[in-house]
């Protein structure tokens, strides 16, 4: 073929990133997590123990799973503000199925997941086919799903779930909480999906340059519908876990969790404007918040300060990232 001397060979410096874990992991996040753990180990004699580590994983699991959901949507330059409400709706539907309809417990799981996926599907159809901005569609679903959960339950929690469901939230095989196991297993599965498959690659590409995706034959609308459905499905699962942990379907469960989930993704290095996202990054981001919360609890710091700390860490992390990237480009 033809030699083309297109441009000088300028070796651009890469920003700090950990390529082999799927790229897009902000190394700073990991550093922050490690430093945070070190500092808390020194400050509190109770921090560094297996039992406390499991506590952190348990406390982070529901938010973390929502974080994975938001990672996929953010990868595609979308946003899912309905995660918290869909969590509540999924939990309520699962609880109603077993508690009011008297169905066997597996139906509770299936219907809870289906309820979440259904909300996500509606989001996806409206975003992809009707062309309504994701912010608006999912903001609408935030209201609709929450309202539906309240209507179905008359605003009252549905107490008492069958033992196998409760086990999902409270069981401890070999001393490890079931939600923690599911959390880490889901991290592995969704990381695989985002970093190794065409589905994940195309999610990132439509977030990066939708026209390029369309021009190269990627089915943008179909993919978007899939992404929002996946997001809803994971929110439904988080809802079931939440319900199992508190042994009730609470229609007010998960209020404003979507913002915490998005925070986890951004802390983990995902680009809010699409094209760059990593599930392992989100896992780290969620753990930063979990560790911070746990540590400040151990140090008996008021939860009001915890919110301030998490907000500050978020802004600091993104600022560090931007600084690092602009330095890399210069």
């Amino acid at each position: 073929m033809v030699p083309s001397e297109a441009g000088a060979v300028a070796a651009p410096r890469r920003g700090l990133s950990w390529r082999d874990l799927g790229g897009a992991i902000r190394l700073e996040s990991l550093v922050v997590l490690v430093l945070l753990c070190l500092a808390l180990s020194l400050l509190s004699p109770y921090f560094l123990s297996v039992a406390n580590a499991l506590n952190i994983l348990l406390a982070t699991s529901v938010i973390g799973i929502l974080g994975f959901a938001s990672t996929f949507v953010i990868a595609s330059a979308g946003i899912d503000l309905s995660l918290g409400s869909v969590l509540g709706f999924g939990g309520v539907v699962g609880a109603l199925a077993v508690n009011v309809l008297g169905l066997p417990w597996p139906f509770g799981i299936v219907l809870g997941l289906a309820a979440g996926a259904f909300c996500g599907l509606i989001n996806g159809l409206l975003v992809a086919l009707a062309g309504i901005p994701a912010f608006i569609v999912t903001l609408g679903m935030l209201g609709v799903a929450r309202g539906a959960a309240l209507v179905l339950t008359g605003g009252q929690p549905i107490y008492g779930l069958p033992a196998p469901l409760v086990w999902l939230g409270q069981g401890r095989p070999f001393g490890v909480p079931v939600p923690a196991i599911l959390f880490l297993a889901l991290a592995a599965v969704t990381h695989f999906l985002l970093s190794r498959t065409r589905f994940g690659k195309y999610a990132l590409v439509i977030g990066d340059n939708e026209n390029a995706a369309r021009a190269t034959g990627i089915h943008v609308a179909r993919l978007r519908i899939g992404l929002y459905t996946l997001s809803g499905l994971l929110a439904g699962l988080a809802g079931l876990l939440f319900a199992a942990r508190v042994n009730s379907g609470d229609p007010t469960a998960g209020i404003s969790y979507e913002l915490t989930a998005i925070t986890a993704a951004i802390l983990g290095g995902s680009n809010l404007f699409g094209g760059r996202a990593s599930v392992v990054g989100t896992l780290i981001g969620a753990l930063i918040m979990g560790v911070l919360q746990n540590g400040l609890n151990l140090l008996a710091v008021s939860s009001f300060y915890q919110q301030m700390a998490i907000g500050s860490v978020l802004v600091l992390a993104v600022w560090l990232d931007q600084w690092n990237r602009s330095r890399g480009r210069a």
Binding site: D208, N209, A213, G275
Partner: peptide, 16 residues
């Protein structure tokens, strides 16, 4: 029509 946050190899094989 390139995905700027993807690497060169990914862009060459985009969609295929």
């Amino acid at each position: 029509a390139l995905a700027r946050q993807q690497d060169v190899a990914s862009n060459i094989f985009l969609g295929r």
